[in-house]
């Protein structure tokens, strides 16, 4: 993608509203040190979103987009779910794949980009919900890990199929009751982060998105490791406040509560990934 598509023609600049000029002038394109601290000023990737008020997934979206080290050369592959409602609003190349095959699509894109632009760094990131990653798309997700594809997979885990009315998913906690799962889930939650480690991911994190700076750190690490070593996996808790009966302003507290329980920060780093992370720290990029 050319950054020029966001540059306003000098000839017409004096007629353009200031807020649009700000989008260009305060943009963080081309700066690998961009991060969540730019969020109040830089709106070039996402200004408004179409998710519910107070939705933790929208927070995750903002933090992730603010943390991309190379947004001008990043492609996001997404899948069916609430996330797919946001993609038309973001100023990045995105591909909406069929439900569950997002990692297969990302594989194709990554391989093609490597072939087409051998001298350029192009990041491919999968952003999908727990249904697409752990249930319907588990095959494609794990197969991409087995094949050591250099892509970053991010799972937004809200522990339920939320936008279809509340069916239990693989990541629903045992015993949890939802509108379409009235008897409560019979089996334990799928430990996807553990499956990712066993399947060959080099950098794996499980956490909630209650801490923006922490999200920035893990997203950057995951992308740098995926670039140079192999698959990386981030498992974020982004509760659906509607499905679990919370108010718009309760999302953050819900995540903070779960930070102490089943979403306690967990990080796995392979020896090769450690080398990359150490190198990036030396370069001042982490």
């Amino acid at each position: 993608m050319s950054i020029n598509i966001f540059k306003i023609n000098e000839e017409l600049k004096e007629f353009i509203p200031q807020e649009v000029i700000d989008l260009e002038e305060k943009a963080t394109w081309g700066n690998p040190k961009r991060g969540v601290m730019d969020l109040p000023y830089a709106k070039e990737l996402l200004e408004e979103h179409s998710l519910c008020a107070g939705c933790p997934e929208s927070m995750a979206f903002r933090y992730i987009l603010a943390s991309l080290p190379n947004p001008e050369d990043t492609i996001i592959v997404n899948s069916t779910g609430c996330t797919s409602l946001v993609f038309p609003h973001i100023a990045l190349h995105t591909v909406h794949s069929l439900f569950g095959n997002q990692n297969a699509v990302a594989t194709g894109i990554k391989r093609t980009l490597e072939w087409r632009f051998p001298d350029k760094v192009k990041d491919v990131i999968v952003l999908a919900g727990d249904g697409a990653t752990v249930d319907i798309g588990l095959d494609c997700t794990l197969q991409s890990f087995f094949r050591q594809e250099k892509i970053t997979t991010i799972c937004f885990d809200n522990e339920v199929y939320a936008n279809t009315g509340g069916q239990e998913s693989g990541t629903t906690v045992q015993g949890h009751v939802f509108k379409m799962a009235p008897k409560g889930k019979q089996w334990p939650k799928v430990p996807m982060w553990q499956l990712a480690i066993d399947s060959g991911c080099h950098y794996v994190v499980r956490m909630s998105v209650s801490s923006p700076k922490k999200v920035e750190q893990v997203v950057k690490k995951a992308i740098y490791v995926a670039r140079e070593v192999g698959p990386t996996y981030l498992h974020f808790y982004t509760p659906c406040i509607l499905e679990i009966g919370l108010n718009s302003d309760d999302g953050l507290m819900e995540m903070r509560d779960k930070d102490k329980e089943r979403f306690k920060f967990f990080e796995y780093v392979s020896p090769q990934a450690e080398e990359v992370i150490a190198k990036k720290k030396e370069e001042g990029l982490l």
């Binding site: 020029n4 598509i5 023609n9 000839e11």
Partner: peptide
């Protein structure tokens, strides 16, 4: 009313068109 195809400098023709519109 110029639209995005001439407002943004995404190629040489867009730059020239912006000048001509002015």
């Amino acid at each position: 009313f110029p639209g995005p195809q001439v407002i943004y400098a995404w190629n040489e023709e867009a730059k020239e068109k912006a000048r001509l519109i002015r």
